[in-house]
Structures are given as C-alpha cells and as structure tokens.
C-alpha cells in the first residue's frame, strides 16, 4: 500500500479523497495548500501526490514544479485534480512535471481506479 499526499484547499474534498484512499488501505498525508504540501512532502517521502490546482499561497502547478526539482521526487507520480474547464491547467501541470490528471468531479471509484493504474 502506498503513502499518498492529498493536497486541496477545500476541506470537504480533502476529506473525501483521504477517506476514499484510507478505505483502500493507503496511508494519506493531507495538506491544505502548496506551501503546506511542500513542507510535508520534504519531511515525509510519499509514493504519489494528488494535488488540487487552484489554491491560495502556492498553487498545484508550482507545487509540482518545486517537488520535481527535488531529487527524491524526480520520478514520483504526481496527478493534478482539475476541473473540466481547465484544459490549459492540465497542460500547465504537465509542463511543470505532472504525471497526469484526474478531472473533477470524480467519484471515489474513479479516483481509486486511476490511482491503481498509476501505482500498478
């Protein structure tokens, strides 16, 4: 089972994602924005990063850029949680080094299916 960093400024989304992942047996580290996430990722090596894009303090795209620059996160899968209106955001995320994206809204099942693909 993997250790997953779930980043979202919305508490309800964080709760939902975290509950779903924990239910599937994963370890979840929660963070409420990019700054928070970066700090937690540094002190706590995770296997997968799921991050919202639009957040205060540091957005998801910048977070991914920062994480990718760290040797320990060079190859770590990182997915953005983005909305359907954010096509350019998906690409921005990709350019920053994201592995892929999950489109909001997603159901717990869709989330788990995607995670399973990435984690193998």
């Amino acid at each position: 089972m993997a250790k997953i960093l779930a980043v979202d400024d919305s508490a309800s989304m964080r709760q939902m994602v975290s509950f779903t992942l924990k239910g599937a047996g994963h370890d979840v580290v929660e963070a409420s924005d990019g700054v928070d996430a970066l700090e937690k990722a540094k002190s706590n090596q995770v296997d997968l990063v799921l991050t919202d894009v639009n957040m205060p303090n540091m957005d998801g795209v910048t977070l991914i850029k920062e994480l990718r620059a760290l040797p320990s996160y060079k190859f770590t899968p990182m997915l953005t949680l983005t909305t359907e209106s954010g096509m350019d955001k998906k690409m921005e995320g990709k350019q920053a080094g994201a592995t892929g994206w999950i489109v909001k809204p997603f159901s717990p099942d869709q989330l788990l299916a995607t995670i399973k693909k990435v984690l193998g």
Binding site: D9, S10, S12, M13, M16, N54, M55, P56, T83, K104, P105, F106
Partner: peptide, 23 residues
C-alpha cells in the same frame, strides 16, 4: 482570484457531492 477560487471550490464540491443544480 480569491473570489474565483471560492466559486471554483463550491463548484467542485457541489459537483462531487451530487448537488447538480448548485454546481
């Protein structure tokens, strides 16, 4: 941006939790 982000979060949440009209 802050206003947008608030609307964005409400949209995302309401869509996720099935409140279609709100979304």
């Amino acid at each position: 941006n802050t206003i947008f982000r608030a609307a964005h979060s409400i949209k995302g949440g309401s869509a996720t939790f099935g409140f279609t009209a709100v979304a």
